[in-house]
């Protein structure tokens, strides 16, 4: 099997969307376009109960075929890389299951294979996770309540790049922030193979009292489509593109 190219949006937020279209619907749309949506809800370290509205986090990720997690700030780094990894494995497994079904018939999944063969398939999935190319668009909610969490977010993104760049497959990252009064989302970091020291990002922020998560996700999806042409040409030969990754 040839390693493919996985596309993910990673949404970091701490609240409930209250503006524009339903983020769950947009996430489902993204999934259809071959983009997985992962969501991390970031709690204050002092917060001791799950605030209302964060259930949305789970629904968005579910619709987007991704992984969700609600965490305290201090575990953000480890969670960001874990969620990204899990989602990669999940997507690859989905593709492998599809192929299994083509060979072995409907309803055949990895779980239903005898342990011996399951072990071999898992090895293949692991290999693909190591060698596939990955594009992660990070979408950060920078509304007022997130402001003091942004240094931790920066650190977590640096850490994510550290984890993923240990793989043999290539990586592309970009970072967007929302809300932005004019364009809904603002590009913070253009597509880059490494999220090094993120100096100065998140310094100029517009924070209104609204959280347009749905529209922001939609813009992020467009941003994926607007990737430089050279990248997209390579994608043309990618077998996974056709299977609707």
């Amino acid at each position: 099997m040839k390693p493919g190219r996985l596309k993910q949006i990673l949404l970091l937020t701490d609240g409930c969307s209250n503006h524009g279209e339903d983020p769950v619907v947009v996430a489902a749309l993204a999934r259809n376009q071959g983009v997985t949506v992962n969501v991390i809800g970031v709690l204050d370290d002092r917060q001791n109960s799950k605030p209302q509205g964060l259930d949305e986090v789970e629904s968005i990720a579910e619709a987007g075929g991704g992984v969700s997690q609600i965490v305290y700030q201090k575990s953000l780094s480890q969670t960001v890389q874990m969620v990204t990894r899990q989602a990669m494995t999940q997507t690859i497994q989905g593709v492998v299951n599809k192929e299994l079904q083509e060979i072995l018939g409907k309803d055949q999944t990895i779980e239903e294979l005898p342990p011996e063969q399951r072990g071999e398939v898992v090895e293949v999935v692991d290999e693909l996770g190591e060698s596939c190319d990955l594009e992660v668009l990070v979408l950060v909610d920078t509304s007022a309540s997130m402001h003091h969490k942004l240094p931790t977010v920066k650190e977590a993104l640096f850490d994510l790049s550290l984890s993923l760049n240990a793989r043999s497959g290539s990586n592309q990252f970009s970072v967007f922030a929302f809300p932005d009064p004019k364009k809904t989302i603002t590009k913070m970091v253009n597509w880059t193979p490494e999220l090094g020291e993120l100096h100065g990002i998140f310094s100029k922020l517009n924070s209104g009292g609204y959280t347009p998560t749905g529209p922001a996700l939609k813009e992020a999806l467009y941003a994926f489509a607007e990737k430089p042409l050279s990248d997209r040409m390579k994608d043309g030969e990618d077998p996974y593109e056709e299977t609707g990754f």
Binding site: E130, L164, S168
Partner: peptide
């Protein structure tokens, strides 16, 4: 050897 570490615990992780 040579692959990416998939699982770690921060305190023991040199990257951290």
């Amino acid at each position: 050897t040579g692959r990416a570490i998939k699982e770690y615990t921060e305190f023991y992780d040199r990257g951290y």
